[in-house]
Design a protein around this nucleic acid. Sequence first.
DNA 1: ATTTGGCTATAACCGATGGCTATGGACGTT
DNA 2: AACGTCCATAGCCATCGGTTATAGCCAAAT
Lengths: 298, 298
Amino acid sequence: MAMDVHLRDLRYFTVLAEHLHFTVAAQKLYISQPALSKQIRALERQLGFPLLDRRPREVVLTPQGQALLPRARELVAAWQETWQAARSAGPTFTLTVGMQTAVGRNLQREALTRFRDEGWRISLRLVSWEDPTAGLGDGGSDVAFLWLPLPAPGLVSRTLIREPRWVSLPVGHPLAAKPEVDFADLADEAFVALPRAAGPVREFWLAADARDGREPRIGIEVTSPADTFEAIASGLGVALIAEKNAQLYQRPDVVHRPVRDLAPAELALVWRANDTRPEVAAFVAAFPAAPSGAAGSQ
Amino acid sequence: MAMDVHLRDLRYFTVLAEHLHFTVAAQKLYISQPALSKQIRALERQLGFPLLDRRPREVVLTPQGQALLPRARELVAAWQETWQAARSAGPTFTLTVGMQTAVGRNLQREALTRFRDEGWRISLRLVSWEDPTAGLGDGGSDVAFLWLPLPAPGLVSRTLIREPRWVSLPVGHPLAAKPEVDFADLADEAFVALPRAAGPVREFWLAADARDGREPRIGIEVTSPADTFEAIASGLGVALIAEKNAQLYQRPDVVHRPVRDLAPAELALVWRANDTRPEVAAFVAAFPAAPSGAAGSQ
DNA sequence: ATTTGGCTATAACCGATGGCTATGGACGTT
DNA sequence: AACGTCCATAGCCATCGGTTATAGCCAAAT
């Protein structure tokens, strides 16, 4: 018997019933209008009776739809409650999230608010750039936000954000005159680098992937964003930086420019491959993965 | 937020919690053990906490599992009730099912019991072999059980059963001596045929598909199973017949033998392609489709 | 101590589902 | 008549939910 519903579909229905307008309801639900249309049709097909009467000018509930609506709301709400109740029946679980400074993108806030509300304990752990695993290596963290590539084997990642690499230059720098920079013009500059201990990520931000094996010239090594921009402003070198971070760290003595011909940087949620605890999986699942290739934006 | 559950998963959980044994619970649920294992793990992952403690000797509920169990039962039951209530809020829908005699296989019973219980009105309409669409053509039926091929354009089918074609012979017939018959030995026999009005299905049961275009020899045309076997017993011809029907229509003066080298016959549920009423779709969906090719049995 | 048997997990595969973008088609409005 | 609004359809792709086959674990039995 095909009697079980996905509560998601009931939720879709309740929202649609509230607005009686597919396009609007789809927006509220953060899905496309055709997706909603299709799901509702599928729901009607599964139930065996129509829920809505699609008229030329308006959409109205059928008698069955009217009967279903309040009960559907109850079910969705009841489930929410049930979930919370069940969760709190177990021992309180504390998830430690490792983050390096300069990750930004209010991911911290996301992590904290979203899960604190739902009865979890989230503990943020700020780690220095010297620990490329952000605490995953020594067990100090359960998950971490990191720039790829992965610093060590045995870790798995879900890419959350993919964005172009820009370059930070001192205001006086000749290349600062152009609105966009070729990496070729940049390759022989002195670079502000992450510490050696940072591992593969250091190489990535030195654009080792675009140098054909030639060694970059290192101006200075730094361990914090403040250091970095101080060094750049002082003319000790230039540095690659993610696009959004460029917008975030504005200083009068430093300018940011997009760099052509560089693969985008990927910010990922990382955890240990052998860590199968459902709490970790649930945390990870709560963050939507970035689309794989070049996304269709529109 | 990934908060919505599929009620099916809750149902799986309740059954598993009842037996505390994956293999047994999977059997009760009519799914394979790995499927259950995977679904439960996925559920735990989605919820963010473990439901069961899989120990070497036994499976036990975690505190969260214990907390979830009774409420999960309630939710599943509540949905059932909700569904019924919503259905009966609409005008009673009567679905007319066209059937030819000799379809058999307790499909009628299936159709009637299954849906009468759930508050539908099912009206069976027995049609003669003269109407190959079993009432779909003139709107007298909403759905019909028919042997393929489809008698007319504009109809869609879901194959329910696929079974070998046998041949019915009078007891004295020389071919009746062998346990199995080659169609080549049968091709030049006189055949008991469906009426011309039956269309493509007539050709199918004359095995036009195995004759390379040569015309069959028609002994007599009949319009009911009784006619058919009377004719065969009287030596007016032989007839092809589906395997299960062969077992069903046993008479002392007629024998049934499997025929080699014939494609199987397909019994299908048929409805109008442009009929998108959810009631029809739900009825259709309630009958599992036959696997496409040679099925993996075991 | 090794084998056997019972039970759950994993792997590889496959069709159906659920999302997307782009486009069509019905209908009211201008 | 042309346009705008809104739902449906088409075509595409990743994920899901099922399958069979097989591995791995542990206790009982040889």
